[in-house]
Simulated scan of single mutants.
Amino acid sequence: MSSLSLVNVYKYYSPHLCVLNDINIEARCGEFLVLLGPSGCGKSTLLHAVAGLHKISAGEIRLADRVLNDVPCQDRDIAMVFQSYALYPSMTVRENISFPLQMRKMPAVDRRKAVDDVASLLQIGHLLDRKPGQLSGGQRQRVAIGRALVRDPSLFLFDEPLSNLDALLRVEMRTELKKLHHRMGRTTVYVTHDQIEAMTLATRIAILDRGIIQQFGTPHEVYNKPANLFVATFIGSPRINLITATSQNGAIHLNQGELRFGVPEELVKAAGQNQTKLTVGIRPEHFSIPNERPAGLDSIDIDVDVTLIEPTGSDDVVLFRYAGTEMSALLRAGSISNPGPARLRVDMSRVNVFNQETGTRLS
Rank of each mutant, 00 (worst) to 15 (best):
R104V: 01
V353I: 14
F156M: 01
P339W: 00
L330M: 10
H16D: 13
Q74H: 15
R130M: 13
Y190W: 03
G211M: 03
N69D: 15
E26I: 14
E310L: 09
K225R: 15
A167M: 09
F261E: 10
L121T: 12
R66S: 12
R260T: 08
Y223A: 03
M106E: 11
Y10D: 14
V171R: 11
L149C: 02
T203N: 14
I205K: 14
V351W: 09
N291G: 03
D209Y: 14
F230D: 05
V353R: 03
A86G: 01
D110Q: 11
A58I: 13
R170W: 02
D117I: 09
L297K: 15
T187E: 02
H126D: 15
K43G: 08
T192M: 00
S57T: 15
F216S: 13
G52Q: 03
I213C: 09
A167T: 09
R183Y: 04
R283K: 10
L155N: 04
E221W: 01
L128T: 08
F99L: 10
L127K: 12
R28W: 00
P15I: 01
N164Y: 01
A202K: 04
P339Q: 02
Q134H: 10
T92V: 06
Q214C: 04
G250C: 04
C18N: 11
V222D: 06
L344T: 05
R174K: 09
P161M: 07
Q74I: 06
S349Y: 04
G334W: 09
R332G: 08
I205E: 06
I300H: 12
L53C: 05
R170D: 01
G37Y: 07
V143C: 07
V318Y: 02
N355H: 14
Q275C: 11
K55T: 13
L344A: 06
L101H: 01
R111E: 12
V67I: 14
V318T: 13
L242F: 13
R332N: 13
D75L: 09
K179E: 04
I235S: 05
I196H: 00
T360V: 11
A232L: 07
F82S: 01
V351D: 06
A232H: 15
I243A: 07
L169P: 11
G340K: 01
Y322I: 02
M327Y: 05
R283Y: 10
V71C: 14
V67Y: 00
S349C: 08
T187N: 05
T233W: 01
D129I: 00
S98K: 00
R293A: 07
V9C: 07
R361T: 13
V34E: 07
N224T: 13
T325K: 04
N164K: 08
A271F: 00
I302E: 05
G125P: 02
V109H: 11
D77K: 04
F99H: 00
R239M: 14
S120A: 14
V71Q: 10
R174P: 01
E326Q: 10
T218Y: 03
A119Y: 03
R183K: 15
P132C: 05
K113L: 09
G340V: 04
Q273C: 06
L308V: 12
L46Y: 00
G272K: 09
H220P: 00
T203R: 02
L46M: 10
I235D: 05
L20T: 03
Q102N: 10
D347A: 13
Q123T: 03
F99A: 08
